[in-house]
Write a protein that binds this DNA or RNA. Structure first.
Lengths: 349, 349
DNA sequence: CTGAAAGCGCTAACAG
DNA sequence: CTGTTAGCGCTTTCAG
């Protein structure tokens, strides 16, 4: 592998000149530039990342922590991050935190040890104190996405859970539903609280409160959706609409509804959250609140790049959600029989 | 940040001793070990990856190229890679090749420049000649997964497409189907040919040949599945089973079938390939050939780690596919009315 | 505008 | 078993 010394010799200049040309800082005469460029070409020279990093303390690598790399949801976010990073000549290393405090700590330290220029964190737990300290001491800029507060973060990208949940609940109420179940995720998640506050707001608009609906806390999983729905079908047969904490919960709910011979949306309306990969493949297509997680990845990366460039950035950026109308929500049974089959698809499924 | 020199001073030994202890090679007396470990603890010392890499020419980073990081299919593979790499103290950088020759070349060079210790490639095109040369010169070990031949690869992980496709076709034939359409992906993919050869084998077992079924080449996309099926419904109303090139194609086919008022599997049976994320969420649950892509990621990484450790490895490892029986395949209409509802679910959906 | 010089933090012979 | 020595390839003052 050719080194900068080889190039400088061949071009008849000093190593510094070559270095300056590559880095694009400092002045280089046209003559020198030509010679160096030719030498680089001929030798097929590519700078050694390690040496450069050791010296300059930059790696051009951005570290990302998400809950789970293999999940389609985070894969999309990673895609957004990568796309943006690449256009700035940076690469991404991602690690999974598995929504576990210790794993998240491990992941962050792994990335810090890789000398990442900056970190993008989607965490589900508060940072361990010693990690907080390590992150702070390393002076590595941090941007967080969704999830919880993270003290060292210089910027935070949040997805507008409250408005999304409000829009969803409003749709249900508009369709005449009043006996509504909300199958929530766990209360440890910020998302959960944000969505509940959105739901409260929507209910208030109809002169209702959270006490007027049935709220159940479980987990963001298909299993929970299935179990809770099966139970509700017996305990609360009057329920006409289920708002699922996310699309996995919705998938489980749908299964339970079908198993009980219920038609969606004729008998029970179903609303999801996320617009996850499978939402459009369910039958009926799931009406859901889309979280533009790929966009969140892009925005977070853009923010981090700006910070690295020393530009000032907004401390919080909120990304709007979008109600995706498919076919799982209808008017409440008997309310307006003539408009039974309305729910037009705003977005092609 | 504490350096190795700080540690050595504090422990009252030389830097070499510290280095040896960290690397775990060479002998260190118990006394020295204790002192060094204490110093490391007190100083919160963590070795500088760049310096280490520059000197030792290892980065403990493995590079991966897949078609698209954001797709659930590759996300699973990445998950498998990461899991395995982490247990060996290595990290993974992935880049997307977008099934495009130039993008793949760019991705590989990016990874090589990051001084990856080894490369795991899932490519859809032949390597560009200059990249081939660069990879060879860098002496970076390469393991490929699926896809096409790649000369510098020291090991290849392939998924047994032929057997999978054969098993699928056999199932269709067993159920009495004879008017079968195979909606294939493009002929540029190795996968396509492998699956066709498996299909040929299955047909041969029934005294049939490829001429006895309807084969159509399109792309691995929902759109193709939809269009082709809609067309078939008119041109070949006698068809009783559709074998889709992958689950996306199957999803499109299912949509077209439903739109035409056909019941699956009563009127037409449908078989997918991949066992992609949405397969189990379709209605009916899609019977499909599972490609254990997460396992492929794990195996490829294990191979690469072995190569890096100087161990001999098998040049080709084939991972078996698995037929996942759900509910989209039934006996051919009218063939055995009594067994209309058989298709037992081997794997819970 | 350019070159010389001085390391970044670590590892790997090698000689004790 | 341990310390000394000599860089890995690059960037960055600092003088010219």
């Amino acid at each position: 592998m050719a080194t900068i010394t080889d190039v400088s010799k061949r071009a008849g200049v000093s190593r510094s000149t070559v270095s300056r040309l590559i880095a694009g800082n400092g002045y280089v005469s046209d003559e020198a530039r030509k010679a160096v460029e030719a030498a680089i070409q001929e030798l097929g020279y590519r700078p050694n990342t390690m040496a450069r990093g050791l010296r300059s303390n930059r790696s051009d690598i951005i570290g990302g922590v998400v809950v789970n790399v293999s999940s389609p949801f985070y894969a999309q976010m990673i895609g957004g991050m990568q796309e943006t990073a690449r256009s700035a000549g940076k690469s991404i290393i991602v690690a999974s935190g598995y929504a576990d405090r210790e794993e998240e700590a491990r992941a962050i330290i792994e990335l810090l040890d890789r000398a990442c220029d900056g970190l993008i964190l989607y965490l589900e737990n508060a940072l361990r104190d010693d990690v907080l300290e390590i992150v702070a001491r390393s002076k590595t800029p941090v941007v967080t996405v969704g999830g919880n507060e993270c003290p060292p973060a210089r910027a935070r990208v949040t997805i507008d859970n409250a408005s999304g949940a409000a829009a969803g609940m409003r749709l249900l109420l508009d369709k005449g539903h009043r006996q509504i179940a909300y199958l929530s995720g766990g209360t440890i998640y910020r998302d959960t609280h944000e969505r509940l506050s959105g739901i409260d707001a929507a209910l208030a608009g109809f002169g209702l409160s959270r006490n007027d609906i049935h709220v159940e806390h479980g987990s963001f999983s298909e299993t929970f959706g299935h179990e809770a729905t099966a139970r509700l079908l017996i305990e609360r047969p009057d329920i006409t609409a289920i708002f699922a904490g996310d699309d996995d919960v919705a998938a489980g709910a749908l299964l339970a509804l079908k198993a009980a011979g219920k038609l969606v949306p004729e008998d029970v309306s179903l609303l999801g959250f996320d617009d996850n990969f499978h939402a459009r493949h369910l039958t009926p297509g799931l009406t859901t609140v889309r979280q533009p997680v790929d966009e969140a990845g892009r925005v977070a990366t853009r923010l981090l790049l700006a910070i690295l460039d020393g530009e000032p950035v907004a401390p919080v950026i909120t990304i709007p959600t979008e109600l995706i109308l498919r076919h799982s929500i209808g008017p409440v049974r008997g309310l307006s029989p003539t408009s039974r089959h309305v729910a037009p698809a705003l977005t092609a499924s």
